[in-house]
């Protein structure tokens, strides 16, 4: 207890005396950790978006006319064997036309110009794992021409396969750019938080160099001299981290929750997602403090 008491008193007096600089370190940690958490949450939101966009999408295998059951029934069985496939249903030309009519019921022109015969029958393949869409095209021996983008399939009776290769590729490009960009900014912010906390510790040590000199003189151990500074850095980083969590939560309440009413179709991050990000932020705060402590105290406190 006396030891804890000692460290507490030294840390508190350090924070008091070093007020403005400690505040600067705290706010940089806050901004850095806020951005860090924000990047995690945006990543989370992007995941939700991708799931929403691709979750209901089916791979559609369009069949050539005339549609023959001895071809498409074995094909359905073959596709059902695939691990990524959840279910396969057959949609006849009539059903497809009916769906077409429903879809464009508001646009009479489209319907009038459409030839029912031109709408093909198809196999609707629902996937258990949308990311594995390629299994379907592979099973049907389809290859995509890199130049024209047209899909040619080896399996008989298949006119064309619509998977969401393009959609997924485009999405993943966007998400990659976004998450790398945000991650990069967060990394720079974390580095500057480290530099600022380290600098605060240095300034604190400089302000108390006389005390430190006397401590060494009377035989205080390195740990006894350093631990208060380490705790000081830890307190600054952790306060910054906690403020960041609070700010992310408030941001979620004030911005995301307002969208919830307007964008019903779009799944949005929830409180549990903010909660999921919290431990990462706190761990990052501890890392900031440890790295800053190691850098800040090097050389300065050699016996």
């Amino acid at each position: 207890m006396p030891l804890a008491d000692y460290f507490w008193r030294e840390t508190a007096s350090g924070l008091r005396r070093n007020g403005m600089v400690a505040f600067a370190a705290m706010s940089t940690s806050f901004i850095a950790l806020f951005l860090f958490g924000l990047s995690l949450l945006i990543g989370r939101q992007i995941d939700l978006l991708v799931q929403a966009v691709t979750g209901n999408v089916e791979v559609t295998v369009y069949l050539t006319d005339p549609v023959r059951s001895e071809i498409y029934i074995p094909m359905m069985d073959q596709l059902r064997e695939l691990p990524a496939v959840e279910s396969v249903t057959f949609e006849s030309k009539e059903e497809a036309y009916q769906r077409f009519l429903d879809l464009f019921s508001a646009q009479r022109q489209v319907i009038e110009n459409a030839d029912p015969e031109a709408i093909p029958a198809s196999l609707r393949v629902k996937l258990a794992d949308t990311a594995q869409y390629a299994q379907v095209t592979e099973a049907l021996g389809c290859t995509t021409d890199d130049v024209t983008g047209a899909t040619v399939c080896a399996a008989p009776g298949v006119r064309k396969v619509n998977d969401f290769r393009e959609l997924l590729d485009r999405l993943s490009t966007i998400t990659d750019v976004l998450s790398y960009g945000i991650g990069f900014v967060a990394l720079i912010m974390l580095a500057s938080a480290v530099a600022l906390v380290a600098n605060t510790l240095r300034m604190g040590m400089f302000a108390r160099r006389k005390e430190i000199g006397i401590m060494r003189l009377v035989g205080a151990t390195n740990w006894r001299i350093r631990v208060p500074f380490l705790i000081e850095g830890l307190v600054e980083a952790l306060i910054g981290g906690m403020l960041a969590i609070v700010a992310l939560f408030l941001g979620k309440v004030f911005f995301i929750d307002r969208l919830r009413g307007d964008l019903l179709w779009l799944p949005l991050i929830r409180n549990s997602d903010v909660l999921w990000v919290a431990p990462f932020i706190l761990v990052a705060a501890v890392l900031i403090a440890v790295v800053a402590g190691t850098i800040g105290m090097r050389r300065f406190l050699d016996v």
Binding site: R216, L217, V218, G219, A220, T221, N222, W223, D302, V303
Partner: peptide, 15 residues
């Protein structure tokens, strides 16, 4: 050692 020997030494020396 810097971490424990030197501080102990200094506890035996007044300056």
């Amino acid at each position: 050692s810097v971490w424990s020997g030197v501080p102990k030494l200094r506890r035996n020396i007044g300056s």
